[in-house]
C-alpha cells in the first residue's frame, strides 16, 4: 500500500484471460448447495407459521437474549485480550512465539466437545482450579460465565488469527513515520495500525462473533443446558428437536437465529466500517 498507481490503465481495467465459463458451473453448484437448505428452512417456517408462536414462548426469548448477550460479551473480551496478542505475535520477537502462535490456533481445530471437557477439568468444582476458586465463593461451571468462557475459548482464535495477518500485512513505514511526527506508540496503534487493519478487524470480529453465537459442544459440557442461565439458542434448538414438539419447534428457533444472525452480521459490518475518523 504505498503510492496510488497511475490511474490510466490499472490491472483491474485491463483485460484478463477469463476463467468465468469454466468456473461458473462448480461455483453455481456451491451457491445452490447453500441456498437450498436455507430456502427450505424459510419455506417450512412460513408454511407452518410456528415462528410467531415460538417467539412468545418464554424459553425461546430467554435463549435468544442469552445468546446475544454472551456472544457480544465474548466479542468484547476477544477484542480486549486478542488484539494485543495478535499485535505481539505479528510484531514482537520473543522466545516461545512459535509455540504461542500454534497454541492460539489449537482451539480452531479442536472439536468443541474436547474444549468443553478441558474447561471443565480446569475450572470445574473438582477441576484443577476449582478448589482454589471455591473458598472465594467463585463457581464457574454451569453458570452464564461458563457460557462466555466456552465461547471465548473456541471463537477468540478466529479474531487473533485474522488480526495477526492484518498487522503483518501492514507496511510498518506508516507507524515509523507516525513516530517521527512525535506521536506515541499507543496513539499510533490506535490512529494508524488499527484503522489501517480495519478489513482484518471486521473480518475477524464477524468470524469470532458468529462462532460464539453458534457455540454448542463446549457450552453443553462446561456450562450445561439450563434455560435462562446457560441455554443459548443452539442448545434450545437441540432441546426443541429432542422434545415432543420435534422438528417444527427446531425449525422455528432455527429461523429466528438465522434472521438475528443475519441482522447482526450486517449491523456489525456497518458499525466497524464506520469507525469514527480522526477529527481535525
Amino acid at each position: 500500500m504505498s503510492r496510488e498507481p497511475q490511474r490510466t490503465a490499472t490491472a483491474a481495467t485491463r483485460r484478463t484471460p477469463s476463467l468465468a465459463p469454466l468456473f461458473a458451473t462448480p461455483a453455481l453448484l456451491f451457491v445452490a448447495f447453500v441456498i437450498v437448505p436455507l430456502g427450505a428452512l424459510a419455506y417450512r417456517a412460513a408454511h407452518d407459521g410456528v415462528v410467531p408462536e415460538q417467539l412468545r414462548a418464554e424459553f425461546v426469548f430467554d435463549a435468544l437474549r442469552l445468546s446475544l448477550i454472551t456472544s457480544t460479551l465474548t466479542l468484547v473480551l476477544a477484542l480486549a485480550l486478542g488484539t494485543p496478542l495478535a499485535y505481539l505475535l505479528a510484531r514482537a520477537s520473543f522466545t516461545g512465539r512459535q509455540i504461542v502462535d500454534t497454541l492460539v490456533d489449537l482451539p480452531m481445530v479442536l472439536p468443541p466437545t474436547v474444549a468443553g471437557v478441558a474447561l471443565l477439568v480446569a475450572f470445574g468444582r473438582r477441576g484443577v482450579f476449582g478448589p482454589l476458586l471455591e473458598p472465594a465463593g467463585i463457581e464457574l461451571a454451569f453458570t452464564t460465565t461458563a457460557v462466555v468462557m466456552a465461547q471465548l475459548f473456541v471463537s477468540a482464535p478466529f479474531l487473533v488469527r485474522s488480526l495477526k495477518a492484518g498487522f503483518e500485512a501492514l507496511d510498518q513505514t506508516y507507524e515509523q513515520v507516525s513516530a517521527t511526527l512525535g506521536v506515541s506508540p499507543l496513539r499510533t496503534f490506535w490512529r494508524i495500525t488499527l484503522r489501517l487493519s480495519r478489513p482484518a478487524l471486521v473480518g475477524g470480529a464477524v468470524l469470532c462473533w458468529a462462532r460464539a453465537l453458534s457455540e454448542l459442544g463446549a457450552t453443553l459440557i462446561f456450562a450445561g443446558n439450563f434455560p435462562g442461565r446457560t441455554q443459548t439458542m443452539p442448545l434450545a434448538i437441540i432441546t426443541a428437536f429432542e422434545s415432543s414438539v420435534g422438528l417444527s419447534g427446531a425449525i422455528a428457533l432455527a429461523v429466528i437465529l438465522l434472521l438475528v444472525a443475519l441482522a447482526l452480521l450486517l449491523a456489525l459490518r456497518f458499525a466497524l466500517r464506520r469507525l469514527p475518523p480522526f477529527e481535525l
Binding site: 504505498s2 507496511d171 513505514t173 480522526f278
Partner: peptide, 13 residues
C-alpha cells in the same frame, strides 16, 4: 521531519 520514498501518507486521512 522525515519523508520516505514511498511517502507513507496515511491513506485513511
Amino acid at each position: 521531519g522525515y519523508v520516505v520514498q514511498q511517502l507513507a501518507l496515511f491513506p485513511h486521512l
